[in-house]
Simulated scan of single mutants.
Amino acid sequence: MFSLRSLEVFYWAGRLRSFSKAAEKLNTTQPTISQRIGAMEELVGEPLFDRMAKPIALTRVGRTLFGHAELLLRQVVAMERDLELNRHLHCRIRLGVSETIVHTWLSRFLEQASRRFPNIDFDMTVDVTPSMLVALQNGEIDIALMLGPAVLEGFTCVKLKEYPLRFYAIPGLVTGEPLTYQKAPTVPILTYPRNTYPFDYLRELVFQRTGQPPRIFANSSISTIEKLALDGIGVALVAEGTLGAAKDGNILHVPSEIDLPPLRFYAFYPLGFGSEMLEELAAIAQRVASEDAHAE
């Protein structure tokens, strides 16, 4: 009969609809996945996957086995949880995280997560939300702490924290405060990349009010935005609390009549088997984010 490892391999190949993605998820090789699936198909006597489909798809027999495999694997996880065995399991979590969180409470999250799961290893990717959404859906990361909310089939999201968007500049760069809509097309604004909420919302808002687009210098690195702001290149528009120079007083908050909704961050992770530890990690992130808010 099938081993639990074979059922796990089959489950992830079916869920991700890819042998290569299943191999990445399980930290093994694609030939190993193919051999496991081939042995299972030989035992069943029928194909479990339609390999001609793009991406691959479960056959009728494969769909039947998938339901049973998920049920058995969930039972194993429940047993491990009741015996607290999951605390001692060595595993690798692929974490996607927005840079705003990197500059605020990521270290505290990693510290508390490692305390709860001492043998956990994190592979971290710092990226913008659109890229992480694709990576989540493609099974390339396991959990993402990023902007939301968003509706993703097969995923859930847990709200973490809101960050007000603020303008910052070196003293004297913006004369005649506050920063008005009329000034926005003339002063370079250093902010997040294209296809992110702050860039798109700011551009549309200023264009509607003035008939001109603002001068936006987009960058995916908050550290780079901070360096350019310190050099007097323009006014930084970032989440409150992310610029170290603002805490030191080298960059000042610039009052503005341009009012943008806050950045709202969520933990996204897939539903179903394999999400038990991710659910706990999301709860830890929620608690740490809440503690961060109370500390302000």
Rank of each mutant, 00 (worst) to 15 (best):
C157M: 02
A289E: 00
M277N: 03
V151G: 06
I101T: 01
E46R: 15
R209I: 07
T28N: 08
L165W: 00
R108C: 01
G232S: 11
L278S: 03
I189Q: 08
N119V: 00
M277V: 14
D50I: 13
F117C: 05
L230N: 05
R287W: 06
A267P: 03
E162M: 02
R81M: 15
V158A: 00
L190R: 00
H88Q: 13
D231C: 11
S290G: 10
I284C: 02
S114F: 02
I170S: 13
P47F: 10
I143M: 04
A245E: 05
A236P: 05
L263T: 05
H253M: 14
E276I: 04
T210I: 07
R74H: 06
H253W: 09
L106S: 05
A169W: 07
L228Q: 14
D123L: 13
A218E: 14
Q30R: 15
R166D: 02
P213M: 12
K21W: 01
S290A: 14
G211Q: 09
A113E: 01
E111R: 01
A289R: 05
F66H: 08
K247N: 01
R87E: 11
E257M: 04
S223M: 01
R287S: 11
P130D: 10
T196P: 02
R81I: 11
I143K: 02
P261D: 04
L160H: 04
A245C: 08
E99W: 03
C91H: 13
L133A: 13
T125K: 11
F66K: 07
A229M: 12
D200K: 07
E41P: 05
E46S: 14
R15N: 06
I189S: 05
D123W: 05
Y163C: 00
L205M: 14
M79S: 14
T59M: 01
R51E: 07
V97K: 03
G274T: 08
G172T: 14
P213E: 15
M40S: 01
T28W: 06
P130A: 11
S98C: 12
